[in-house]
């Protein structure tokens, strides 16, 4: 690590551990290792851990430990920290995805921006294995990257009021799939039949920070058979 971790106060019950200056797939193994060691070190005094691209938010119970005690605990866990080995890296998930203009209206926009055919966009997007950098925005919403730089595409000027659940999307160099219907401004490329957030499932969210994800192109028939919703997208109003 060429960057020295910095602790910043995040209030009476939290510290932000700033581990890195920029986004990198290799950050995750360090952040996961730190999260694991914080779990052990804080025990019952730990309330929540929120890993993101370059940081870990450590939320503790201030009735149990004071902010300065928590700071000391975190500093101890940072000393001699080693990244988790690749063998312990997150699961690989394959998300069956129906790439189609009717459910992915921005395929055209991304293709034009890249100077590519729509089929080439689909190939470029589905070829890579992505890393989950962070979960947020909505339960189970995973920010993944990095996509082929040729596909880089800014968010929509006007976000959609409703993006259907399962929508596979692109913004900047990141990609994601919407677990539930929410508003959203990302470019839609298609739709997955995978259930990304399920309150009945052990662990609730299909994807976790550090997991790896591949979007696997499937036909409309397979998508429908897997329970995918083929309702075309409404135009932006």
């Amino acid at each position: 690590m060429s960057w020295k971790p910095v602790l910043e106060s995040a209030g009476l019950d939290a510290w932000i551990v700033r581990m890195f200056a920029s986004i990198d797939e290799r950050n995750v193994s360090w952040l996961s290792a730190l999260a694991r060691r914080c779990e052990e070190a804080f025990g019952d005094a730990l309330v929540d851990l929120v890993p993101s691209y370059t940081t870990l938010l450590v939320v503790f119970d201030p009735l149990n430990v004071s902010p300065s005690q928590a700071r000391a605990i975190i500093c101890e866990t940072l000393a001699g920290l080693e990244p988790e080995e690749t063998a312990h890296e997150g699961e690989v998930h394959e998300l069956p995805t129906w790439y189609d203009i009717s459910v992915g209206p921005e395929l055209q926009r991304v293709a034009e921006g890249a100077g590519m055919a729509v089929s080439e966009v689909v190939e470029a997007h589905s070829q890579r294995t992505y890393k989950v950098f962070a979960l947020g925005f909505a339960p189970g919403f995973a920010f993944m990257g990095l996509v082929d730089p040729r596909l880089e595409c800014a968010r929509l000027d006007t976000p959609r009021k409703r993006v259907p659940a399962g929508s596979v999307a692109l913004a900047g160099l990141q990609t994601a799939a919407y677990p539930t219907e929410t508003p959203g401004g990302w470019n839609l490329l298609g739709r997955t039949s995978a259930r990304l957030f399920d309150r009945e499932r052990e662990g609730f969210s299909l994807l976790r920070v550090g997991d790896r994800v591949r979007f696997v192109p499937v036909s409309r028939e397979v998508f429908e058979r897997e329970g995918g919703n083929t309702t075309p997208l409404e135009p932006i109003t």
Partner: peptide, 10 residues
């Protein structure tokens, strides 16, 4: 910033 965890009252 690069998005990061945010605590209550931030």
């Amino acid at each position: 910033l690069i998005s990061e965890g945010i605590s209550l009252g931030s």
